[in-house]
């Protein structure tokens, strides 16, 4: 662990010399490295992709797959989820689009 820390510090000093960075650049590299470390750590701890024992495969997707067609009449299960079961969420998405357009028009038409 101490060796790794030493290598990281040496690499930062080497990059500082090579790229002629200011102290602020060193701080940026440290921060980005820290964020990257935690992201990699999180991804490494995630359950494997597509495993049937994953915690996301609980009773809710089972309900969607078993009675989705009978509940909504839609063969496309994605449509039945986003427009029937989670339609309120889709209204939020449409609102995001609307606000984006309003912001673009307000910014670009003013000058």
């Amino acid at each position: 662990m101490e060796d790794l820390l030493f290598i990281i510090i040496a690499a930062i000093f080497a990059m500082r010399y090579l790229l002629r960075l200011q102290a602020r650049g060193v701080f940026t590299i440290l921060l980005v490295g820290l964020i990257g470390f935690f992201f990699s750590f999180t991804v490494a701890e995630m359950p494997p992709f597509g495993d049937p024992n994953n915690p996301v495969f609980n009773e809710i997707p089972a309900r969607y797959m078993e009675s989705g067609v009978a509940d909504t009449g839609a063969v496309n299960i994605v449509s039945s989820v986003i427009i029937d079961y989670r339609a309120f969420d889709t209204i939020g998405e449409a609102t995001v689009l609307f606000v984006a357009i309003a912001a673009v028009i307000a910014t670009l038409r003013s000058h």
Binding site: S79, I83, A87
Partner: peptide, 11 residues
Amino acid sequence: AGAIFIITFFL
């Protein structure tokens, strides 16, 4: 599919 057809159209 009732409302799904209508809402998809508007979307």
